[in-house]
């Protein structure tokens, strides 16, 4: 019996190899260890043994069974690992295939820019307000100290609805509305559509966009204005930006200034875009609110002072994205929009 058991073990070890598959292994397990397997057959003959040999052979049979079970389990693990490796290896795909099943939408570059500008000012403690696109002559010109005979009031400069109503030519009437509604102190910005009688070409559009800001409080000075706009410009275009405040003229501010900013394309080196001056010209207009404008809105111009600034959002978006033709902003060509 002893010899039969040893022969069985040798035979099994010979057959259980890692070049078989899992099914074959299972068949071998049944063949050797199953209820009708070889070991069972041998053990069935135990009755024929003497009483003293029975425990010896029993123990030996258990050892052989354990050896076979171990061998089968080990081989099973090896075969499983091998199978997994084979599957993974067979599943390699072409990762250069482009399916384009998912599409994201795109924000309009100008509106996106306007919202970014608003957010920048929100972070500086300004509140966003809005105003209507159709305005009164009073809010758009009179209250802003614009002289009666100012050319900007002409039919050839401004779109009128009747003699009292027009399409706002700037976002400045929002200043008037806000000062009348909220009084002082005040810290607001407002972005929106503005309109001027300009034929369409690559730098002009009858509809364009401005962002207007206004601060009214006690002891507000030009030094505060410069500080605020400098922070804004650096946030918008980068820390290396320089600004240049040049005296200018607007009817609703006094003193008034225009702000030039380091040329965004060449960062001040001089290039064709800046006419080799190193400056992007007239990016913003600003100044101290004219005392008459404060008074027009019921604010005591002796107690309060304020500053205001305005900028063309279209221009800023165009500079930012390198867009040379303003018409692209209004044409809504999908191939243009999907670049942003």
């Amino acid at each position: 019996m002893k010899e039969r058991l040893e022969a069985l073990r040798d035979a099994a070890f010979k057959e259980i190899q890692d070049n078989i598959d899992l099914n074959e292994l299972e068949e071998l397990r049944v063949k050797f260890l199953g209820k009708k397997g070889e070991i069972t057959k041998i053990l069935r003959d135990m009755g024929k043994l003497s009483a003293e040999m029975r425990p010896v052979i029993g123990q030996m049979a258990n050892e052989v069974r354990a050896d076979l079970e171990n061998k089968i389990n080990e081989t099973k693990e090896i075969l499983k690992t091998k199978a997994k490796e084979q599957r993974v290896a067979s599943e390699t795909i072409d990762i250069t295939v482009n399916t384009k099943d998912i599409k994201r939408g795109h924000r309009h570059p100008l509106i996106q820019t306007a919202e970014e500008l608003e957010d920048l000012f929100i972070s500086m403690g300004f509140s966003v307000v809005t105003g209507p696109e159709i305005e009164t002559v009073e809010n758009n010109f009179d209250a802003l100290n614009s002289p009666d005979n100012h050319p900007s009031r002409d039919l050839s400069d401004t779109f009128y609805i009747n003699e009292d109503l027009l399409l706002r030519t700037h976002t400045s009437p929002v200043q008037i509305r806000s000062m009348k509604k909220y009084g002082a102190p005040l810290r607001i910005v407002s972005a929106g559509r503005t309109f001027r009688y300009d034929d369409v070409d690559d730098t002009h559009s009858p509809m364009f966009h401005q962002l207007e800001g206004l601060v009214v409080d006690e002891n507000i000075s030009m030094a505060n204005l410069i500080h605020t706009l400098d922070i804004f410009i650096k946030e918008l275009f980068g820390e290396d930006m320089k600004t240049r405040y040049r005296p200018h003229h607007f009817p609703f501010t006094e003193p008034s200034a225009e702000v030039d900013v380091t040329c965004i394309e060449c960062r001040g080196e001089g290039c064709p875009a800046c006419n080799f001056t190193g400056w992007s010209m007239e990016l913003l207009g600003c100044g101290m609110v004219h005392p008459q404008v404060l008074e027009n809105c019921g604010i005591d111009s002796e107690k309060y002072t304020g500053f205001a600034f305005g900028m063309g959002i279209d221009r800023i978006a165009m500079v930012k994205y390198g867009i040379k033709d303003i018409r692209l902003l209004f044409e809504n060509d999908n191939r243009f929009l999907e670049q942003f």
């Binding site: 795109h106 309109f195 009858p206 509809m207 929009l337």
Partner: peptide, 8 residues
């Protein structure tokens, strides 16, 4: 995609 068109 977001678009922007004239008010008139």
């Amino acid at each position: 995609n977001e678009v922007m068109t004239y008010s008139f």
